[in-house]
Nucleic acid binder design. Structure first.
Lengths: 157, 157
DNA sequence: GCAAATCTTTACTTTTATGTCAAGATTAGC
DNA sequence: GCTAATCTTGACATAAAAGTAAAGATTTGC
C-alpha cells in the first residue's frame, strides 16, 4: 500500500499554496522550485488540481496559482480522492489476472478488508485540512496525533 | 493510496492455502487456476512468500505449497510488509523530484501524516489473520467490522 | 537410475505510471 | 497593438512495475 507520486507531489504543491498569505500566489516555476520538481511536472499537477476546483489559476503576467477555498476548509480526503483517481472504485476491475473478470467477483473474501482499509484511511484524512499541514514537522506531528488520539481514547467493550 | 498487484495477488494466494485442510497442498497450476493468474506469476509470488517464511514448498512429484504456520497465526500486517517491500521506510527517498534529496528532508510537514496513516493501516492489519479471510464475503465483512467496531466504541474525551 | 512432476532462478517483455516538451492561449503593462 | 510572462493542452519519452519464458534443480515412483 503506497502513496503515488501524483498524490505526494500534488499534496505538497497544495500545502505551498496553503502557506501563502491572503491575496498572494505562486507561479509554476516558484512552486516547482519550492518542491524540487520540474515546472512541467508542477504544471501537470496544478492543471489537475485546478480542474478539480482546489486551486484558482490566473494566466499572463502577474498570474499564478492560489487556493480556491480556505486552507482550513480543504480536507485531505477530498484531495486524495482526486489525486489517486478514486482508486477504490476500480480496484476489482484492476486485478482480474489473465481473465476478463476477477474470479472472486460477487463473493470475495478479501474485498471487505480492502474496502474497510480504504474507509479507515479516508476517515483519518477527513479529519485533516491543508491548514493543519502548514508548519514544522514537530507541530504537524503533534496536531495529527492529537486528532488520532481522540479516536482511540477510553476504549472498553 | 493503492494496493499493488503483488500485495493483491500474493495475499489471495495465501488465502487459498489457508483454506486447505491439514496436510493438503496446492501446486502452482492449481493456485494459478484458483486465482485466475498465470502459473509463472504465481511462481514468482510463491517464491517471495516462501523466502519470507510464510509458505513451505516441496519440489517434485506430489510437491506443492502449504502454509508454514497456522493460518490463525499469520497476521496481514506481516504479510503486507513483505509484499509491499516495506515501502514506508523508503518513502522519503522515493519522492525527491529532480533533486538527490527531498527538499523537505529534516523538516517535512506532510511526513507525520504519511507515517501516521501507515501506522493506522498497519494497526488495522495487525488484528486480522489469514484464517479470518477464509469464507464468504458476508462472513469476512462481518468479522472485519466487528474487529474495527471494537476500536471506536465508547469514544469520549 | 530414469522419467515425470514440481519448484527455483534469472533474464526478458510488456504494460502502466511518471515526467518532459513544445505549441497554443491568455493577460498585464507599456 | 506588441511583448513578455504565464497557464493549458496534447503528444511524446522515460522509468518502474508487472508479467512471461526458459533453463535448471529436486523429488517421487516405478
Amino acid at each position: 500500500m503506497k502513496i503515488s507520486a501524483q498524490e505526494e507531489y500534488g499534496l505538497r504543491c497544495l500545502v505551498q499554496l496553503a502557506a501563502l498569505g491572503e491575496g498572494e500566489s505562486l507561479t509554476l516555476p516558484q512552486i516547482a522550485g519550492r518542491e524540487g520538481i520540474s515546472a512541467a511536472n508542477a504544471g501537470k499537477l496544478m492543471w489537475l488540481l485546478n480542474k478539480a476546483g482546489f486551486v484558482r489559476a490566473i494566466r499572463g503576467t502577474k498570474g499564478g496559482y492560489s487556493l480556491a477555498r480556505l486552507p482550513g476548509e480543504i480536507y485531505l480526503s477530498e484531495v486524495i480522492k482526486i489525486l489517486d483517481a478514486d482508486e477504490i472504485n476500480t480496484h476489482c476491475e484492476s486485478y482480474t489476472g489473465v481473465l476478463d473478470l476477477c474470479v472472486h467477483n460477487g463473493d470475495c473474501g478479501i474485498r471487505p478488508v480492502i474496502v474497510g482499509l480504504h474507509e479507515i484511511v479516508q476517515d483519518a484524512l477527513s479529519q485533516i485540512t491543508l491548514a493543519q499541514l502548514v508548519g514544522t514537522e514537530a507541530k504537524v506531528d503533534e496536531r495529527f496525533h492529537r486528532i488520532q488520539g481522540l479516536k482511540n481514547r477510553h476504549v472498553s467493550v
